[in-house]
């Protein structure tokens, strides 16, 4: 499992350098052939018995912020990169740019708020980052417009085999692919680490174009709403209940025969799985299945509570079930007739 290292790297969509460099170095260690395409996707090839072209994809990028203005007192205004719920930004520590300048997003003192203001979240436009600078000039020496900002959140293990980290969506998938590549399976597949998923599934478009897959398997961190006051049918996934099989989301309707077949594989191999019962959200499968003449796709995910926040929570058991199931799917697909 490479999750600690992967989640502690910064890789806001459009700025995946740290994650890419880490993955490249791991691929060299594993001894796996790879190249980086024009957009920055890392495409690794595990050679083996081949029946069809399989593309296993996970995205390297994460949601975050980008610097858009430095004000006259040296405070930093920013925009969101990807889907960030403004409610998660209050009172957070962040790291800015390549030099990881420490900053905080504060909030007006509760004492100075009107009754109506208390408890309300502020739109991103009203928030700013404070790096402790005393002037515009001092900030400009350290930070530039266009710098990417990521949450400061370390990897913590807690509770029943759970982990807390930022960017579990989708370093979880990246870590699974690295594990699959380490296994040196006698089954041919491409392990693809895509860029810019969070800002419109950009990287997967060109990766799929190059690989022309017959089957795309997308590995994700996905929404999990199994918290108090959420009705069972709205939970989407439940933590600790296994690998989540997608049926339908905003970008893809999954081939039901493939879904059922994968469920069957899971049952035969005693791998815990569940269905992802929300149709909200989308992922790289949405562009892979529309590539060229079309491809079959499937998404298997690790449920993540508080996804897209600095404190995403996932289960190591679910993660391991995704690894096992992805491995079996690849082996099964390349078994031949």
């Amino acid at each position: 499992m490479f999750l600690k290292e992967l989640t502690e790297l910064s890789g806001v969509a459009g700025c995946e350098y740290e994650v890419r460099d880490y993955i490249k170095s791991k691929l060299r260690e594993i001894g796996c052939e790879f190249y980086v395409d024009k957009l920055g996707n890392v495409i690794a090839h595990n050679k083996g018995r081949k029946n069809k072209t399989i593309m296993v994809a996970a995205h390297m990028d994460e949601v975050g912020l980008i610097v858009k203005h430095i004000d006259s007192d040296g405070f930093i205004k920013f925009d969101a990169v990807g889907g960030i719920d403004q409610r998660v930004l209050n009172s957070k520590a962040v790291l800015i740019g390549e030099n990881k300048i420490a900053g905080v997003i504060g909030s007006k003192a509760v004492h100075l708020m009107t009754q109506e203001e208390r408890g309300k979240s502020l739109p991103i436009d009203k928030l700013y980052i404070d790096i402790g600078s005393t002037s515009k000039e001092e900030t400009e020496k350290l930070v530039s417009v266009g710098d990417y900002v990521s949450f400061k959140s370390d990897y913590v293990e807690f509770g029943n085999n759970l982990i807390k980290a930022k960017a579990l969506d989708d370093r979880a998938g990246c870590s699974v692919i690295l594990e699959l590549l380490s296994m040196k399976l006698d089954a041919d597949f491409y392990g693809v680490f895509t860029v810019m998923e969070e800002v419109g599934l950009r990287g997967a478009v060109t990766a799929a174009y190059q690989l022309e897959p017959d089957f795309g398997l997308v590995l994700e961190g996905t929404v999990c709403a199994d918290m108090p006051e959420v009705e069972d049918h709205n939970k989407s996934t439940i933590i600790g209940k296994g690998a989540a099989l997608s049926l339908m989301d905003n970008t893809t309707v999954y081939d039901i025969d493939i879904v059922r077949n994968i469920a069957k594989i899971a049952e035969e191999k005693n791998i815990q799985y569940q269905y992802r019962t929300s149709s909200a959200g989308g992922n790289d499968a949405g562009v892979i299945h529309k590539s060229k003449e079309g491809a079959k796709v499937m998404s298997i995910s690790v449920p993540c509570r508080y996804i897209h926040s600095p404190v995403s929570v996932a289960s190591k058991d679910d993660y391991n079930n995704v690894v096992k199931l992805a491995k079996e799917i690849i082996l099964e697909s390349q078994k031949g007739e």
């Binding site: 719920d85 918290m227 989407s236 509570r305 929570v313």
Partner: peptide
Amino acid sequence: VIGIKPPH
């Protein structure tokens, strides 16, 4: 951790 219900 103190989370929050997801947007969906």
